[in-house]
């Protein structure tokens, strides 16, 4: 037994940024207290970690920063339950715990390498895709053209607005940010993610797609992709379920024979189709 997988690393909240106009989504920048933990932390885009708030509990949250961003780890958290509510209330400088990284992540150095990449996201599901996009941009030569479709209800509900501005116009990056309905001051795309996807989706030739968002968005995004020849084994999805251990033991997150925490959270659509719909 080399280490106890249940012990979180002590860390501090270094910075908090409110992401959305409703104030319900914040991004937390977290730094490790122990140099040893910082130095040994290695994650892949698409992985998650358990965040601990003393006395409240632990929650699984996707890692929003890329491993190429060193010295901190980012988590973008929607306020929903006991622990996320506590997290939203605590101040900068507070000590929390972080356990991980957990799960498999996107195959950025496997099946995605050398390919054109299509990233599709809706709402606040862009978090691990932010990690992925920054990773891809940091290793630009390893990938072909990158197409992003990202939608939210209103301009104020979009995540990482400043970063999207900075990514605008980068070579080989096709950004398509859309909102559901016309809004004052918005000059960008208007329309649901599936509609925009139909308009801009690249050829499936030598390509991989990563799709994260509400199930209804994923459902309607698939037909336009299938129409132009995308196959289920080229499409990567990230599942979510209630989790406790994150180690494939406690039994909470199983979808049939697989554990979202250990065998996932990233699965190809081909894999997901062979599973019961228990996520």
């Amino acid at each position: 037994m080399t280490k106890n997988p249940y012990l979180p690393y002590p860390a501090r909240i270094d910075d908090v940024a409110v992401e959305t106009e409703d104030g319900n989504i914040k991004t937390f920048r977290i730094v490790f207290e122990n140099e040893r933990d910082r130095a040994t932390w290695r994650h892949t885009p698409g992985q998650f970690a358990m965040l601990s708030i003393a006395g409240k509990g632990e929650i699984p949250i996707g890692i929003a920063s890329s491993p190429t961003e060193e010295g901190f780890v980012l988590f973008t958290v929607n306020r929903a339950g006991v622990v996320t509510t506590a997290l939203h209330q605590i101040e900068k400088g507070t000590r929390i715990g972080i356990r991980g990284p957990l799960g498999n992540g996107f195959p950025v150095d496997g099946a995605m390498r050398g390919k054109n990449i299509l990233i599709i996201a809706g709402g606040f599901a862009f978090t691990t895709l932010r990690a992925t996009l920054i990773y891809l941009l940091a290793h630009r030569a390893n990938y072909g053209k990158i197409t992003v479709v990202y939608g939210a209800r209103t301009p104020g509900m979009l995540l990482y607005k400043d970063e999207f501005k900075a990514w605008q116009g980068l070579d080989g990056l096709d950004l398509n940010v859309t909102i559901d309905r016309e809004a004052p001051g918005w000059s960008g795309l208007v329309g649901f993610v599936p509609t925009i996807t139909e308009r801009v989706a690249p050829s499936p030739e030598n390509a991989a797609a990563l799709i994260c968002g509400p199930p209804i968005m994923i459902k309607f995004t698939m037909p336009p992709l299938e129409k132009i020849g995308w196959q289920d084994d080229q499409v990567y999805l990230s599942l979510e379920n209630r989790m406790k251990c994150g180690l494939g033991v406690c039994g909470h997150c199983n979808v049939g024979p697989v554990y979202v925490c250990k065998n996932g959270p990233v699965f190809t659509r081909e894999q997901v189709k062979k599973l019961p719909i228990e996520f």
């Binding site: 003393a54 006395g55 509990g57 632990e58 033991v249 406690c250 909470h252």
Partner: peptide, 8 residues
């Protein structure tokens, strides 16, 4: 053998 984890 399933379990829950809680803080007290």
């Amino acid at each position: 053998y399933c379990f829950d984890i809680q803080d007290e």
